[in-house]
Write a protein that binds this DNA or RNA. Structure first.
Lengths: 251, 251
DNA sequence: CTTGACTTTGACGTTGCGTCAAGCTCTACG
DNA sequence: CGTAGAGCTTGACGCAACGTCAAAGTCAAG
């Protein structure tokens, strides 16, 4: 007695998948049907069904078809393949967690009505680990002044300030990657611009030499600041360039 | 003074992406360059850079380019888009968690050296919530016998038994979805096969009428069993067919 | 014989670019 | 001024796993 053969549609319904998927599995050689009629029709036997069952099981565990082929053909051990896969799932989970945290932070920042970068650069003072240091160096009123100044701006003023901020940051990044020395003309020009930019944010008050040095250190030490300059390396470049510039400042 | 224009390569480096990506963003209209030279070269200005910066920020939060376009063009609100995205991230996280749990259960099952289905069907007796019920109905020795029988089989015997098991399950699924009544000839033939199959697993001992009824209930009540019959509906069909069959059995 | 259900082989769409490939352009050097 | 080497352009395929038409042959029932 020869085995019972089933059409592609029957098989798809039995296994809870689609005929298209079965054709795909055939195309990639994962599940060739037991027989192919002279009309080109695919006919599947019991062994095919069993294999399909295992394919679908592994699929719903999230394995790729290539992996599944390896496992079913004995090229790779089931347990090892699944443990690798579990490891991958865990890393994906971790990645999603981080992404979700970032998104939630961003939402929170947006809801406070402050642009992310402006928030980080201006409002960041009061919730970093450097809060005490910052306060004793500039005093709480310095931040408060900056804050009230910011809130008093019109939307277009805010946009314009943000544009300036963005441009400055990007120029710093460009400079740090150009290979130019921190005491080069270009870097020092940027340092001058940076001081000007700071004084805008501080309502016209210009930073003292010590404040400038302290700011530089903070850029390097706090990754949230450093990120604006293209990471630690960029921040280091900015700090050094500002330090050079500070020497030329009037006391 | 006209703005400083940068080449595609420069922009890519500044922003930490690739020229290919920039060309792609141009292709889909997400970031057309400020100017295009007569030679076809793309030239970007500061506004382009700012927009690119925001694009990349949203990208690393995991948003799709379409969503990003909506947000940047003001078609959609930032906060709403991000909250939708956060919701999607959470659902993905949940999906991954379930998948990971499944994979880990499967690994555990494999490590015990027992095939998943055989394990569920034969070895499942001693760790279900029905353990007490099962024991008082069939006694511990019934399971023990089945277990020792199983362990005594050769690999090819095990494979053969598994093939039979698979075939029976799939036929049940097919029958339950065919719409045939539980007292139809086809369903009752399957019930007969089911009893035969059970007696193989029990080393030749045939189930009594009560045992058969009890088994049917268990198939429905325990999702691990039900899964083998295509879910609750399939298991219900099996239970009912077995109940009909039980009436025809010799006491 | 007709009709309707089922099957076949293409082939494009999805998502965000990576990766050649062929050919034009720009820049610096001798 | 010629040329090499870098940079730029527009295609076009590849990836993962099928979904979704489309055109056309096949089969079973009336």
């Amino acid at each position: 007695m020869n085995e019972k053969l089933r059409s592609i549609q029957e098989v798809a319904q039995l296994a809870g998948t689609t005929s298209r998927a079965l054709r795909h599995y055939d195309d990639i050689g994962l599940l060739p049907p037991a027989q192919i009629g002279s009309n080109g029709y695919r006919y599947y036997n019991q062994a095919n069904l069993t294999r399909l069952q295992r394919i679908l099981l592994l699929r719903q565990l999230g394995l790729g078809l290539g992996q599944i082929a390896d496992v079913l053909d004995g090229t790779q051990d089931d347990t090892i393949a699944l443990e690798d896969h579990a490891e991958w799932l865990r890393s994906e989970q971790a990645r999603l967690s981080r992404q979700l945290a970032s998104v939630e932070r961003t939402i929170a920042a947006l809801k406070e009505g402050t642009e992310l970068m402006a928030e980080e650069m201006l409002d960041g003072f009061d919730h970093t680990q450097y809060q005490d240091e910052v306060e004793q160096r500039w005093g709480k009123k310095a931040y408060a002044e900056s804050d009230s100044w910011w809130r008093g701006l019109s939307q277009s003023d805010k946009d314009e300030f943000k544009r300036q901020t963005d441009a400055l940051m990007m120029d710093w990044v460009a400079a740090s990657r150009s290979g130019d020395a921190v005491d080069s003309e270009m870097a020092q020009a940027l340092a001058t611009r940076h001081v000007d930019w700071l004084s805008i944010g501080w309502g016209g008050t210009r930073p003292t030499r010590d404040q400038l040095l302290g700011l530089g250190e903070m850029y390097v030490a706090d990754e949230r600041f450093a990120a604006n300059f293209g990471g630690i390396q960029g921040a280091t470049y900015v700090r050094d360039a500002l330090a050079i510039h500070a020497q030329t400042m009037a006391t």
